[in-house]
């Protein structure tokens, strides 16, 4: 694990728990089964600070539960995920082990015999309990609710010693009667992606405090909860009222906004035809900045603390060292609140 910048950031923030995306699962029309679509590529690229305490996260598209057969829903999918989770966990732990072993191994002394196996064995024992929780991320609907919940029950059987958690969007949080409550040990309230990004009239589809307030209630949700706030953003690219795409901050050159755009409300109006990455933007196009405002995030954290009873963790989505620097003070302030 060589990501020293990430390691130092994690240490600096005092972060002790990470949620790590293991894989995405989508539906294959060709094969008529759920298949892994993308996920953690190379375990060793994880910052070493993440390995000791983390929760694997598996994102499953809602489409999977629209199409999944009973057999896959009640049995096969959980079995396949179990195999992959075990394998990826082993890879992460082994990579971490190597890093730690490199740090604690005594310096080489000529003629002295050193037992590497013993060292690794001791370290492996110390990692045996990690992770303790598996999180499933799915934007389920009323239509897919039953199948999704059946899958969660079958997953629990595959991970008897683990807590199973599920992400809860704001809508199912407010309407548990209609949307159901997932049969899991705890939930992660996702306080972002609050509007359709293609809605040209939305102010910020990623995070809008006013929208969040509409969903928070005093009623206690039937599951113990953690909550996640966004520390990410992008520029929604509009031509007239039509969304043309998403431009990520990393795609923009340092002076692109200054040199080619003018301010226009919450967005940037392009003054001339201009290419950003593989996108050909035309004069008059607008980039709507969709970064959460730090003050709004702080207020959101306070609201969550006041209104979501028994909140265990506040989490930030997602890990991007560039954006973490942008939200440095905000994250620290929110940590202080908790």
């Amino acid at each position: 694990m060589s990501n020293t910048l990430s390691d130092s950031l994690a240490t600096s923030f005092g972060i002790t728990h990470f949620y790590v995306r293991y894989l995405d699962v989508d539906w294959s029309e060709q094969m008529q089964i759920p298949v892994p679509s993308s996920g953690l590529g190379y375990a060793a690229s994880l910052p070493s600070a993440m390995a000791p305490r983390y929760t694997p996260v598996i994102f499953i598209t809602n489409r999977v539960f629209e199409r999944i057969s009973d057999r896959w829903c009640d049995d096969s999918l959980a079995l396949k995920l179990k195999a992959i989770v075990d394998e990826k966990t082993k890879a992460i732990n082994e990579a971490y082990l190597t890093t730690v072993a490199d740090k604690v191994r005594p310096p080489y002394v000529a003629g002295q015999v050193y037992n590497e196996d013993s060292l690794r064995s001791r370290l492996r024992d110390s990692l045996a309990r990690s992770p303790e929780e598996i999180q499933i991320d799915c934007d389920w609907t009323v239509k897919t609710r039953d199948r999704y919940f059946r899958f969660l029950r079958s997953l629990k059987k595959q991970f008897p010693g683990f807590a199973i958690s599920a992400t809860i969007r704001l809508f199912p949080y407010k309407y548990p009667g209609k949307m159901g409550v997932p049969p899991v040990d705890r939930g992660m309230l996702m306080c972002y992606n609050m509007d359709r990004v293609d809605n040209s009239r939305a102010r910020n589809s990623v995070f809008d405090l006013a929208t969040m307030k509409q969903y928070l209630t005093d009623k206690q949700y039937p599951l113990p909860l953690d909550a996640a706030l966004p520390v990410f953003g992008w520029y929604a690219w509009f031509r007239g009222n039509t969304l043309k795409g998403i431009i990520y901050p990393a795609e923009l050159g340092d002076n692109d906004l200054r040199d080619h755009f003018g301010n226009s409300g919450n967005g940037y109006l392009l003054h001339e035809d201009y290419t950003i990455g593989n996108h050909y933007l035309r004069e008059g196009d607008v980039l709507r900045k969709e970064m959460p405002e730090p003050a709004a995030l702080e207020e959101a954290a306070q609201l969550l603390q006041q209104q979501v009873k028994g909140l265990r963790r506040i989490s930030f989505f997602h890990w991007d060292t560039r954006l973490l620097n942008t939200y440095d003070n905000t994250i620290r302030k929110i940590y202080a609140t908790f």
């Binding site: 994690a10 923030f13 990470f18 949620y19 994102f59 992606n193 992008w234 506040i314 930030f316 890990w319």
Partner: peptide, 22 residues
């Protein structure tokens, strides 16, 4: 709530999950 129980999510962004519908 203790500082040690704070968490940071590491999940890549999935554009497809943002825009449902046709």
């Amino acid at each position: 709530m203790l500082r040690s129980s704070l968490a940071l999510l590491l999940i890549c962004l999935a554009f497809a999950s943002l825009a449902c519908g046709p």
